[in-house]
Amino acid sequence: MSGGSGKNLNLKLKVWRQKGPKDSGAFVEYDAPKVSEDSSFLEMLDQINDRLVLKNEEPISFDHDCREGICGSCGFMINGNAHGPMKNTTVCQLHMRNFKDGETILMEPWRATAFPVIKDLMVDRSAFDRIISAGGYISVDTGNAADANATPIPKPDADAAFSAATCIGCGACVASCKNASAMLFTSAKVSHLALLPQGKVERHERVDHMVAQMDAEGFGACTSTGTCSASCPKGISLANIAMMNRELLASAVMKREAAAGDGI
């Protein structure tokens, strides 16, 4: 396959190295010679790691899986920006052509109380899983799939729900927020489900429990700076946060408790 520029870059890397959760960690400098402009950021790190292994040194740990920008596994700060300088791009989809020859690239893990560092550039994002477990689902009886057209959904609602559903849970929103807030992530799930007829049934309980879990995990509040949305590889909108705020208020004033004795 052709089409690449074929040019190489000589870079310097400053990478956060931390042996484990309890290690204090520090930046370590590495030379990255002859990096193809056509390689992805993670391929560049693979090359560095190959050399480190050959020198019997510990390779740099980082999360990755699909390398297609859809799984949400990868992600760290590159020169202060979550997922690097490009908008709507995950680290795995970031290409080295976006960097200049001779540049020093600084890499550090997502930093948040709720995202403790596991090792090097890897952080523990299970706080997100617990927020989902708290209510980010629809309880449905299993059975045959209903006919797609049997449940009408207004097109604007379907579009907004789809946009919110593109969240891959990478954590860039938390990482880039000055308050390490998880509002964009949580709100994407809340509005995705609350916009759809199947999700409306549990909308009050869902937002109550997801927000409570989000707070309990130690994420900060929203200051409406918009850095989360700007850093989001899927461009999730701040409008979701506004919707979550409305949902929580609606739950506070409208939620009904189930009557004792099955309401009889």
């Binding site: 930046f27 979550a82 550090e108 948040a112 880039s176």
Partner: peptide, 28 residues
């Protein structure tokens, strides 16, 4: 809220987000 926000990120970044991915001076 300020105290909660600071507790949410006790360790600062070596480089802070900038450009489109950064926050405004007023908000900070």
């Amino acid at each position: 809220l300020t105290l909660e926000n600071r507790q949410a990120r006790p360790q600062k970044y070596a480089m802070t987000p900038n450009g489109a991915k950064g926050s405004s001076l007023a908000s900070r």
